[in-house]
Nucleic acid binder design. Structure first.
Length: 505
RNA sequence: CGGGGCGUGGCGCAGUCUGGCUAGCGCACCUGCUUUGGGAGCAGGGGGUCGCAGGUUCGAAUCCUGUCGCCCCGACCA
């Protein structure tokens, strides 16, 4: 009857990490590839609930830093995108274009597009240009500044190869767009939002990140500076989890976003943009989950506790269910993080084992099994998702400590993720070591290897070529590093620039 | 865009080379009984016309032609 101990997810992370990732998403019912629309995903209720929690927390953080929400059109006139040269270069190859506004029956009875548009629209891949057009109309005087607006939206980028949450043709995100009177103020805004993202990643997602600046080659098309937070996944690859761009006056010049300053001088605004997307859900999955499926940090979990009633007869049921319901109410009266403890009572007609496994795979932090034996002792049998630990605990003690237990789990997940990153980060100062670090033992079936490498470097075409060959990228130059002189690992040239290198998603 | 592969119940597949009874199997699903504290067992049951179109044939999932879609590798991917 008892099955041999087995992991819920197959393959394991060690066996095949990319496939494991797919299977975790499937087993946790987070999302699926749309069978009808190429490259797009269906986000299922459990996955969407995680995104909603992310939204709720971030939205409050944005408002606490003075931002307001607004909404701009899904479509952008083709000519808007053309205005900023680097911007065109970056996005032209992956745009969905709307050319008609009507369907008519064709000769074979099938519908064909009709009513061609005078100027085609593109579906926004990002909204700098369409939002900038509004800003140009709204701003006249320095008194109109700053504009601090965020938009929650979907965007479309016609990607060749997609992966659930990490890169999909359509995805959900927020994009902040701000306009300022001075360069310093805009730079401050850019850095402030980078800090907000890092705060969110570390304190809510329990995902340690490195804040850094992107090199020229990795910059947002049209930006003067791009900052990002970079996280390490369990396969030791890097994930860019959020970006904050200082756009200088590049966009304001081509869009005529200008104002009169105190001296009556006409000036162009300094603008910024910043965003995080549903990719964060992918980051959350790959940071914490194990070979039994998803693990959700409690502060973002849609449900913190699932109560699993156990009974054999109607008679037992009539005893167990009321006990569970009152336990649920008591737990829900407890506060956790910035809300209450979220509890679900799972009274579905399924076998106990199967039911328990479903919640394990979905990453619910705590499972409380309650049967007649527990009730006799006024206790529950508690399982922790993060450590796998299970033990009986008195009901009153459980209720009294649930909040601190969740906090302990949240902190533990962060520490575990940080150890993984720290253990797989090293300073490298010679090229042979660099190559060895990033070269798999078995090229046919690459194993988990490498990690983050901190190296002095200069950016040259030859260096880019070598990195490309190794499939390694410069993730960022961390902010707040103390300046020191070193030697470029690749060219031997003296430099003070020190960056984080890694394979990346 | 170049190379390779695949379309058969919800999912995963066999059958195709060598056309032939009513198109099978596993999982999932439904019902009943026995079970139930880490993924249950037995019995019964529902569901597919074989991607699509045309052709060859007494007969096509199977052969031929065309077409559509998807996947993998490469290229590409702020």
């Amino acid at each position: 009857m008892a099955k041999p101990p087995k992991n819920a997810i197959s393959p394991t992370r060690e066996e095949d990490y990319p496939e494991w990732y797919q299977q975790v998403i499937k087993a946790a019912e987070l999302a699926e590839n749309s069978p009808d629309v190429r490259g797009c995903m269906v986000i299922r209720p459990w996955g969407y609930a995680i995104w909603e929690n992310m939204q709720r927390v971030l939205d409050r953080m944005f408002k606490d830093t003075g931002h307001v929400n607004a909404y701009f059109p899904l479509f952008i006139p083709l000519s808007f995108i053309e205005r900023e040269a680097a911007h065109v270069e970056g996005f032209a190859k992956e745009c969905a274009v709307v050319t008609h506004h009507r369907l008519e029956p064709g000769p074979d009875g099938k519908l064909i597009p009709a009513g061609p548009l005078e100027e085609p629209y593109i579906v926004r891949p990002t909204s700098e240009t369409i939002i900038g057009a509004s800003y140009a109309r709204w701003v006249q005087s320095y008194r109109d500044l700053p504009i601090l607006i965020n938009q929650w939206a979907n965007v479309v980028r016609w990607e060749m190869r997609t992966r659930l949450f990490l890169r999909t043709a359509e995805f959900l995100w927020q994009e902040g767009h701000t306009a300022h009177a001075t360069r310093d103020e805009a730079i401050h805004e850019t850095r402030q939002m980078l800090d907000v993202y890092a705060d969110f990643a570390e304190n809510y997602m329990a995902m340690p990140v490195i804040k850094g600046e992107k090199t020229e080659g990795e910059r947002f098309p049209g930006a003067v500076q791009t900052y990002a937070i970079e996280a390490m996944m369990q396969d030791r690859k890097a994930l860019q989890a959020g970006t904050s761009h200082f756009l200088g006056q590049n966009f304001s010049r081509v869009q005529e976003i200008k104002f009169q300053d105190q001296n009556g001088q006409e000036e162009y605004c300094w603008t910024t943009s910043w965003g995080v997307s549903t990719r964060l859900v992918g980051g959350l999955i790959m940071t914490h989950s194990d070979d039994d499926g998803l693990i959700i940090p409690p502060r973002l979990a849609p449900k913190h506790v699932v109560i699993l009633p156990i009974y054999r007869s109607d008679e037992e049921r009539s005893q167990v269910i009321p006990y569970c319901e009152s336990l649920k109410r008591e737990l829900e009266a407890q506060s956790f993080s910035d809300g209450k403890v979220e509890v679900m009572l799972d009274d579905r007609d399924l076998r106990g084992g199967e039911k328990a496994w479903q919640h394990i795979k979905k990453g619910v932090p705590l499972r409380a099994e309650v049967g007649p034996k527990d009730i006799a002792k006024n206790a529950v049998f508690l399982g922790r998702r993060d450590t796998g630990q299970k033990q009986g605990i008195g009901r009153d003690e459980f209720v009294a400590t649930v909040s601190s237990l969740l906090t302990e789990m949240q902190d533990g997940l962060f520490r575990r993720a940080k150890s993984l990153r720290d253990d797989n980060t090293r300073d490298i100062d010679n090229l042979d070591e660099f190559k060895a670090y990033f070269t798999p033992q078995d090229a046919e079936r690459p194993e988990i290897h490498g990690g983050f490498a901190n190296c002095y470097f200069v950016e040259t075409p030859e260096v880019d070529e070598l990195l490309k060959k190794l499939k390694v990228t410069i993730r960022c130059v961390p902010v707040g590093q103390e300046e020191a002189a070193g030697t470029c690992v690749f060219t031997g040239q003296p430099t003070t620039q020190r960056g984080v290198f890694a394979k990346a998603y």
